[in-house]
Amino acid sequence: MNHKELLEKMLLIRAFDEKVNELYAEGKVHGTAHFYVGQEAVAVGVISALREGDVITSTHRGHGHAIAFGLDIDRMAAELLGKASGYCHGKGGSMHIADVKAGMLGANGIVGGSMGIACGAGWAFRRRGEEKVAVCFFGDGAVQEGIFNEALNLAAIWDLPVVFVCENNQYAMSKSVKTAFDTDTLSGRASGYGMPGVTVDGMSLLEVHEVASEAAELARRGGGPTLIEAITYRYLGHSKSDANLYRTREEIQQWRKRDPIAHFASELEKRGELQKDEWRELEHAARERIEEAFEKASEQPEPEPESALEDVYA
């Protein structure tokens, strides 16, 4: 595992979403988007624990998962701008970026919507005798949906190689986990399904990586699913319409002090794996890369209007 590369991934994710946020503000991107800023250690920590051939399902807040999984920034940027060269040829946008052939089974605009799909990928692996793993990302909001119960139970009774990663970013839009749950942890629910559950500091890439590696290995060996709860925080609003009326500036500032990127960079500095302030250079490079991607994307052609009628059926 190359720590510097992981740091670069986190920086790319942050730069990507900050750029998208800026483009929305300028009215250069339409629709909506959900930003992953603050949660980078979860996607990168988990996905760095995977191997070739493993798959993931993502959420409406999916840019981070896609970048961590290795999707092409240029095609992601093109999709955000609705271009024909985007991952979905302009038909999906922010919430539906996917590369099914590569194993990125899709961002999903429905909360909890991909939990069954992840089980299906696990089912296919198990059935074919492949030692592969499906990672299912979802938020604290999805834990409240009915399919959470169904999917975790199915994965447990059939020992499916699925790692359920709950990104507890403290809010389902404006609903705080403090008032939405009457339990201390969400990972505690795992015992109700007969699977291991673990809560981890989602602001620490190394800690996330460690628990995800364990869960992935367990799944690979036929030991069934694990529920990981990564405690994290989204710095930006739920989506572009969010005025942050349900939380305080102070609260956001408190979480920013535990920033996963700064935290990891200083850890690497301490270990001598990174020169002092080298991460600022990496951050600059990431921003350049993202600028370049959106610039290139903006020059790409629009899809033909008639293409709206295609791809309804195979």
């Binding site: 798959v55 399902t57 099914v100 089974l105 919507g113 991909s114 939990m115 069954g116 799909i117 992840a118 089980c119 299906g120 990928a121 696990g122 089912w123 296919a124 692996f125 059935r127 499906a134 009915g146 399919i147 119960n149 169904e150 999917a151 139970n153 199915l154 009774i157």
Partner: peptide, 18 residues
């Protein structure tokens, strides 16, 4: 399956993607 229509239909969709 257990009584989990959303779960197992979702699972079937996942297998079809695979």
């Amino acid at each position: 399956t257990p009584l989990s229509e959303a779960g197992f239909v979702g699972l079937c969709i996942g297998t079809s993607l695979m």
